[in-house]
């Protein structure tokens, strides 16, 4: 990983952006639920102007409309992020009625705080289940299967509810060309929430030391097989 000159962010000039795996599954699940039972789905992100592209990606696979909480690109801490989402959801719900389900990724791919979804659930006064790999709507409740060591824990909570999901929940589809065309015409509501002073304050990013092991070459092609088996015997796995 390469850091920017001030060590406060990653150098992203040569990187692309994408919806993270957990969130991609959340978007796919919302589309499937609406396809199966009708209703409306909305995608929300808090991020810089460029994040509009990921909102289009979500609408291209079937989400109906988007809410973009636009930032100046600086990093938001989990408390400010959750507060802005609680406000936005509150405003949206007083205009168009409550969301039965709100999906979050279990943790963000980059900062990995493991908390925004739970803070929003608390802010909205709704039950929340985390780490979910299977979602089934049963009448006015939702059944959630959470992955644990050796199996799955099952929860059933009344809706409206918050569910934080993990990759593996489903296999997200790729957007089609007509899907992309339709996405271009779907509405995006843009606003710019205010950020409060972060109480978990990032000072510097550091690339951990000691990751570079230089591989010992055991050979090239199939003729390396005896050297590989010899190594396996030496370390006691063959």
């Amino acid at each position: 990983m390469v850091l920017a000159a001030d060590s406060m962010s990653l150098e992203t000039r040569h990187l692309g952006f994408t919806i993270s795996p957990h969130e991609e599954c959340g978007v796919e699940e919302a589309v499937r639920l609406i396809e199966a039972s009708g209703g409306e789905s909305v995608v929300l992100t808090l991020g810089p102007i460029e994040a509009a592209e990921q909102l289009r990606d979500a609408m291209a696979i079937g989400i109906d409309r988007a809410i973009h909480l636009q930032t100046d690109g600086g990093e938001w801490d989990p408390e400010s992020t959750a507060a802005a989402i609680v406000d936005a959801v509150g405003a949206e719900e007083s205009a168009s009625g409550p969301f039965d389900l709100i999906f979050f990724g279990n943790e963000s791919a980059d900062a990995g705080g493991f908390q925004v979804g739970l803070r929003v659930a608390r802010g909205l006064g709704r039950p929340a289940v985390t780490g979910v790999k299977k979602v089934t709507v049963e009448g006015t409740s939702v059944r959630c299967e959470q992955e644990v060591d050796g199996g799955r824990d099952v929860y059933v909570v009344p809706m409206p509810a918050v569910v934080t999901v993990k990759e593996g929940l489903n296999l997200p589809r790729y957007p089609s060309v007509p899907g992309r065309m339709r996405a271009g015409r779907k509405p995006v509501a843009v606003s710019a929430p205010a950020r409060t002073q972060a109480r978990l304050e990032l000072e510097r990013l550091v690339v951990p030391a000691g990751q570079g092991r230089r591989a010992e070459l055991l050979g090239s092609g199939p003729s390396a097989a005896p050297a590989v088996v010899e190594m396996m015997r030496r370390i006691g796995v063959a």
Partner: peptide, 27 residues
């Protein structure tokens, strides 16, 4: 991955992996 591995074999895995299995059976 070569910067993060302890051992490496360079080549086509479709030939190398079966060769390792065959060598294991033989040995």
């Amino acid at each position: 991955i070569m910067q993060n591995a302890d051992y490496a074999v360079v080549g086509d895995l479709k030939e190398i992996v079966p060769a390792i299995s065959a060598e294991l059976r033989k040995s």
